[in-house]
Write a protein that binds this DNA or RNA. Structure first.
Lengths: 128, 128, 128, 128
DNA sequence: GTGGTCTAGACCACG
DNA sequence: GTGGTCTAGACCACC
């Protein structure tokens, strides 16, 4: 279970944690129904405040990735290709691609980088 | 010159403006040496405070995309494929791709979306 | 912790503060990992507006001297001998030396002044 | 007569011009009694506004480096090791040295850089 | 006209 | 508690 927080990362700590757990769900390390580590556990492992992790879990719950069982930990929710507004989904992608373009990468290079990142973000044996 | 701010966007206003100008530079609407609209102009157009736009311009200057000449306006800087640390460049891309994956898109679909966004982010006649 | 702003100084207040903190880092009063005083604290101490100090801290963060953790304070960043373009580094030195020359100091005198200032700018026990 | 303005330089244009002329005086290219090029000439050469150069000349006059003959151009003033307040003279030096230290240079390296810059800033045949 | 700085005061987001 | 953002409005510096 690889979660970490990085001081050089501009995202808030809770966001790094939430994004990290989403990544674990995306790549299959965390599968439907599996229990997430407890808030206390994560807080201790990462050396951050309990409330910070609680906020991350709260966001994951709000977004539907996790179901919290009152007083009994959190589970990875059943996958739901629920439609999120396409705009909210594409905005971060656009910004990221713009940065790559301005950094001087060609379309082909960007496509290559994307393929590479997708390979890392996907479950090992499952190609969709 | 299409710049706008969106209340639904989670980014700060000044960040939306800065990102918007970067996008205009990336797609060639703003080319090297061209003058940016004045801080006051943008502020009036978008209906936000002068200082907010000034912060955006300052960030663009700090990042080297724009050269500001005190008392005269701001110009799009000569391009500098200056290397930024790769991590800082890839982190936002990773997060964006993770969201697409979790939204249920296959690798092929994601690749298609990326191609489509790249086409929009690039200058019309210039394919790199 | 000696920070002060001087009305006779031509630099902007936020710049004086940023430079002052850089000096404290350079001379070892602020070491890697140490917490900086809070924005509010500095603002109160110096009798200037909160935002002015916030601008200084932001510049320090942008230049990599400080890592700011939203909601928790700011820390002196781990040192990074990251290369800045030599020109930008030498220009202020050239201007300063020119002023000394025009003030009538000989090369030897200038060298002496530089040694004296270096001694003040360095940590007490550590000569590099 | 080498004067130029650089968009990457953070100083105001008029300040770059004034500093440039001071450097020419310091290194002997402009000697006591010599005529400075006309405001119009410099403005045309550098491609900047007349008023900008006028401001630079005004500053040089205020600081005593130049005597302006109403309607008849400007001359390099007789040298005057006039005491400027030491603080105002040392502040820029301190800031420049701090930046060098933070960039990772040792005392010896800084001293070497200073010697090198002094050699460039001095008249060829005259070592003081 | 341009951008730069500063203030006062408000509200939000984070830990 | 911390820092981040935004506003309104002022004044300055530069071209």
């Amino acid at each position: 279970m690889y979660l970490n927080v990085d001081g050089d990362d501009k995202r808030a700590i809770y966001q790094q944690v939430a994004d990290g757990i989403k990544a674990l769900i995306a790549n299959g390390e965390l599968r439907e129904g599996m229990a997430l580590p407890s808030v206390r556990q994560v807080a201790a492992d990462l050396g951050v405040n309990l409330n910070t992790i609680a906020v991350a879990y709260r966001q994951l719950q709000d977004e539907g990735f996790v179901t919290v069982r009152h007083g009994a930990g959190a589970l990875v929710a059943a996958r739901r290709p629920q439609q999120r507004d396409r705009e909210g989904l594409l905005r971060p992608l656009r910004a990221a691609l713009t940065e790559l373009i301005l950094a001087g990468f060609s379309d082909a290079e960007v496509a290559g980088i994307v393929q590479q990142e997708l390979a890392l973000a996907r479950p090992k044996g499952e190609r969709k």
